[in-house]
Computed example of a mutant assay.
Amino acid sequence: MRTVDELIRLLSDRGGVVRTVVVTESGFSRRAVDRAVRDGLITRPRRGWLATKDAERTLVTAARLGVVLTCRTQAGLLGLWVHDSTGAPHFAVPRHAAVRIPFEARVHRGKPIVPRHPDALVDPIENVLAYVAECEPFEHALATWESALNRSLVTLEALRGYSWKPAARRVLDHAVPFSDAGLETYLRVRLRWLRIGIRVQIWIAGHRVDGLIGDRLVIQIDGSHHVGAQRSEDIRHDAELRLMGYHVVRLSYTQVMFDWPAAQDLIMRAVAQGLHRAA
């Protein structure tokens, strides 16, 4: 007879929330499962589902409601860049599913890009990106897509093989895999009107720079927690870049996110002075 410890281990190995049929097919009797639930060792979020006591809360919620985590919610859980991680969660359900959600949520319906397995509580990455493209403004969606590309969760070659809706097709047409964070995507998109070459995440003097406009104008963007040793190293690298003939404009997270006109004005003035050109 299989033990409760083995049951908990099975649930944990499969993400913490599992369909009951998977457990019974693995050799656990219904009586043993019911006893483990009764003793408080595991929970039953919904009929047909089991969970460990420490399972990810969002997965338990998805099982309880009969939905799949998708769009910006799942993108955030994957560690992708999301412009704003607050707000109502995003779920996916089949087109005609009768689902009642007792709190504010964004529910996506319709045929997914990639079919969902009946056991799935999270959407495949392609479905996540498809909904992000439909749900978010272009700039925000592009940043999430490029974050997925940068983390090698998808490739441009594979993405081009799917049948996307117009919004996702537009994002795909502009996406590149080099942006390490959404701020770099914003930089590239917001300055493309200058019609000057802008490269992101390239190596100069042994370190990556966030952006290079033309040949000599380096744009560095500080993260929201830019302090301590990282800041000291960035100051040293800025000085080395200047000695090599580069001009450095360093922007803060707040400037890019909340005061872009002022940040853009600094860059425009640098370009007007020709600081992007090689001597």
Rank of each mutant, 00 (worst) to 15 (best):
E233R: 15
R216A: 11
Y131D: 15
V128L: 12
L191N: 00
S152Q: 14
D234R: 02
L187Y: 07
L78D: 15
G110Q: 09
L121C: 05
R116L: 15
L65M: 02
V248E: 02
G161K: 07
V200M: 00
P94C: 06
A36C: 02
Q201L: 00
L172E: 10
A205F: 00
A97I: 04
Y131S: 10
A32V: 12
P177E: 05
H247T: 15
T185E: 04
M268S: 11
E104W: 11
S26T: 10
L121G: 11
N150W: 03
W203K: 07
W260D: 04
Y162T: 07
A63D: 09
M257I: 08
G223D: 10
I235L: 14
A92Y: 11
M244R: 15
R216P: 02
K165W: 11
D210G: 02
D238N: 14
I8S: 10
R9V: 10
R269C: 09
Y162F: 15
G40V: 10
H90N: 05
V68A: 05
G274W: 09
T3M: 09
E157L: 08
V33A: 06
K53E: 14
G274T: 02
P115A: 12
A205K: 06
R64V: 02
E233M: 12
L69P: 10
R250K: 03
E139F: 07
P166R: 05
G40E: 13
A130S: 14
A130K: 01
T52P: 10
R250E: 10
M268A: 14
L241Y: 08
Q255T: 08
G16Q: 02
L153Q: 10
V227P: 02
L187T: 07
V37E: 04
L78E: 14
Q201K: 03
A272W: 03
G161S: 12
A133T: 01
H90S: 06
E25H: 13
F178T: 13
Q264V: 06
R216L: 02
I198Q: 05
Q264G: 15
V248G: 05
L77C: 09
V248N: 01
L129H: 03
P45W: 06
D34P: 01
A205C: 08
A51E: 09
I8N: 07
G228R: 07
F28N: 06
F103E: 09
K53M: 13
A32H: 13
P112Q: 04
Y246F: 15
M1C: 09
V271Y: 08
T73P: 01
R109V: 08
T86P: 01
V132P: 03
V4K: 11
V248M: 07
R30L: 06
A272F: 01
R195S: 13
R231N: 09
S252I: 04
L212D: 00
T73K: 07
